Computed example of a mutant assay.
Amino acid sequence: MFVSHYFEFEDRVTGGISESVAHQRKMLEKRGIAYTTEPVLDADVLHCNVMGPRSVYYASRADCPVVAHTHVTAEDFGESFRFTNALSYPLRPYLKRAYGLADALVCPSEYNQGVIDSYTDTPTRVITNGVDTEKLAGFEDLREEYLRRYDLSPPVVFLVGHVIKRKGLETFVETARKLPEIDFAWFGPLDRELKGRSTKRLIDDSPQNCTFTGFVDDIRGAYAAGDIFFFPTHEENEGIALLEAMAAGKPPVVRDIETFSWLTDGEDAIKVDGDAGFVDAIRQLRDADERARLGETARERSEPYHLDAVAEEYERLYEEVCGR
């Protein structure tokens, strides 16, 4: 089998989508599936990861089955970067047409699948973005270095990813303000030139115990320094950083949204409905034994999301669309 594994905007798109593409390609290699990153319209399968205009063009003219990833929805596009709120309105009809060109759609979660089912009747398959545990190997050894680099005192409440409002920026900052005795750190690119005034104001006016590191050259350092993964996101298709934190044994505190329905409150995460409860949840996890208990359960819960456990699902999907 030969797959054209195409990622439009590959040189510009970062964050979770880029990580997912890297995971997919690693899984193809694990299964011995030959692929190219170029758009080849007579391959056995054309797999598009972002349905931009060039991907739509290729999908409409392909002489082979088309698989498309549903990383992007109008629902999760807003409150990200400057102008994304305005662009989210025309995005939905565009994506309805784009996703309708595929023979099969890959959804990273059941929640995302439910959203996409309102866009098109193209067959969908839930396949997690997965977590690359090999990428995290040895993270523990970086703890002292990264605590010292960012002047952090354990237990550290942390988040990993682009600093955007949709991921709960305001909640993150205000929760830190209410817990001045605890260090909060957000590891990830700031991209200030792409941010609106309200986002930059939240960053600039954050309390002294709230650190925004900017881009981190070795993301393992974030999971080394952090102790409590705080993810108050309002909308998420899955959340690779959450899976990574769980695989690293870090107890997660998350907003109780439909995306995280697979987590069990009090067992592998603490789920909070509304901003007020985050303070108590984090205070609860100041206890080292409670962090260890929840973190170990979270680590075990992440195992079905490891790349080795997911790789076969892509091969099976490709065989099915070729058989059709």
Rank of each mutant, 00 (worst) to 15 (best):
L147T: 06
V156Q: 05
V126S: 06
L194Y: 03
R166C: 09
S153N: 09
E140V: 05
F158L: 08
P154A: 00
T199W: 03
I164S: 00
E181G: 06
E170D: 13
G168S: 12
E140Y: 03
Q113T: 10
L202Y: 12
G168V: 10
T175M: 06
P189K: 13
E144H: 14
C210A: 00
V156L: 02
E134S: 14
E144G: 15
L105S: 12
P207V: 05
D121N: 15
F184A: 05
T213E: 01
P207F: 02
E181M: 00
S118M: 08
V126Q: 06
T133C: 09
P189I: 09
E140G: 14
I116W: 07
A176M: 04
P108C: 11
D132H: 10
V173F: 06
V173E: 10
I203A: 08
F212G: 09
I116A: 05
E134A: 12
L159Q: 05
R143A: 09
I127S: 14
G138T: 04
N209H: 02
E144D: 15
G161S: 06
T213L: 02
N112R: 10
D121G: 08
V173R: 12
D205E: 13
R148C: 00
A176D: 06
T213N: 07
E134L: 14
R148E: 01
P154L: 02
F212M: 07
E140S: 12
G130W: 05
L190P: 08
F184R: 14
T120E: 01
L202H: 11
D183F: 00
V163C: 01
D121A: 08
R143M: 13
D204S: 15
E174A: 09
R143V: 09
Y119T: 05
K165N: 07
F212H: 14
F158C: 13
D151L: 01
D121F: 07
E174T: 15
T124C: 11
V160M: 05
C210G: 04
K178W: 07
K195C: 04
R143L: 10
A185V: 06
R148T: 00
L147I: 01
W186M: 11
P155T: 03
T175Y: 03
C210F: 07
S206N: 13
E181P: 03
L142T: 02
I203N: 11
W186R: 13
D141Q: 11
V156E: 00
S118L: 06
P154C: 02
R125G: 14
T122E: 04
N209L: 01
T171G: 03
F184T: 05
G114N: 06
F212C: 11
P180S: 04
K135I: 14
V131Y: 08
T120A: 00
L179D: 04
P108E: 07
T133M: 10
R177W: 07
F172W: 08
S198A: 13
A137W: 08
C210S: 02
I203M: 07
D183V: 00
T122G: 08
E134G: 14
G168W: 02
S198H: 15
Y119M: 07
E170G: 14
L105A: 09
E134C: 11
P123F: 01
R197L: 12
L194V: 06
V106E: 08
R177M: 10
P123W: 02
V126Y: 03
F212N: 11
S206C: 09
I203E: 01
E170F: 07
E181F: 00
N209W: 03
R192F: 04
R201V: 10
S109L: 08
F139Y: 15
G188M: 13
L179C: 04
G114A: 01
E181W: 00
Y119K: 15
P207K: 10
